[in-house]
Amino acid sequence: MTDKSSIFVWIECQGEQIKPVSLEALHCGLQLSESSGQKVCAVLFCGSKVPDLSPLSDFAPHSLKVFSHGRWQDHNSQAVSSTFFKMIQEQSPRLILLPASNHGKELGALLSGLAQAPLASDCIEVECLGENDFKVKRPIYSGKAYASLALEGAGLHIITLRPNVFRGESGSATVLPEADINTTEPESLSLIVREVIKEAGKIDVTEARVVVSGGLGMQGPENFGLLEDLASVLGGTVGASRPVVDNGWRDYSNQVGQTGRSVSPDLYIACGISGAVQHIAGMSGSKCIVAINKDPNAAIFSVAQYGIVGDALEIVPLLTAEFKKILNG
């Protein structure tokens, strides 16, 4: 049973797997729970086969609610939000935490409308404020500034969390509570998911720990293979500046910046990117930034920890070889 002061954490699944961003949300929920005493309930929607729940035991919630039915297999925002809202009405949680993924942001916003609850999206800090309230910090103007907000009042609040920011050391192996599994068929709604198209093996730029980004300085689409090689050695993914996307060298999902994706990886390597404000806005939250540019005065160096002045086409393959050596040896 959940008591009236619980924190619900939406566990996002991808196919039959729990997405790592969900564990970050759980980790954040548990940290809040430690200071406020509120109980954490993980809520998961999945197809008729329940996914392997063991990853959750790294950050074991106090209770676990699973909705399992063939019709939950593909995420249907309308069905999930209406069922989630019913649960909110029955159990009156204080807070809902969701990863700020595409689905998570959409679900958070739908729930904010359904429950008339304030929403703070894409937060990078969350803490308890006094006994009942929360304080969050979130980037605005895609990271050119931050807003600190108080979420106050005894009602429901909703927070979505920027991926890669709330990762935690997996705690001492705690025991996962037994899942309360609900197998009733979801009601029929007007939205129908016709097709889910996945690019196999691709890590999304917002979820990658390492992003190797290329700008116009990469000269042409044929040279992005060099960045793919470097990214794959580092277990990361490739990003791009806007003109690279506009030229059709890379897909829009790769675009980093104010009108692209905002990323916060551990390591961001900018290759042949000048460092326009719109680009910096989307990546300045990265923990460590490396810039490679042949122009020693490029603006990108002003946000970098490490700079290399030189030809990216020459430097990148050398880096790939060096990383390969130290990571394998």
């Binding site: 993924s101 939205l191 129908i192 998911v193 016709r194 889910v196 198209i197 691709k202 979820e207 999902s253």
Partner: peptide
């Protein structure tokens, strides 16, 4: 969506 797309009717 992350790493892909969906078609929704």
């Amino acid at each position: 969506i992350e790493g892909g797309a969906e078609r929704i009717e």
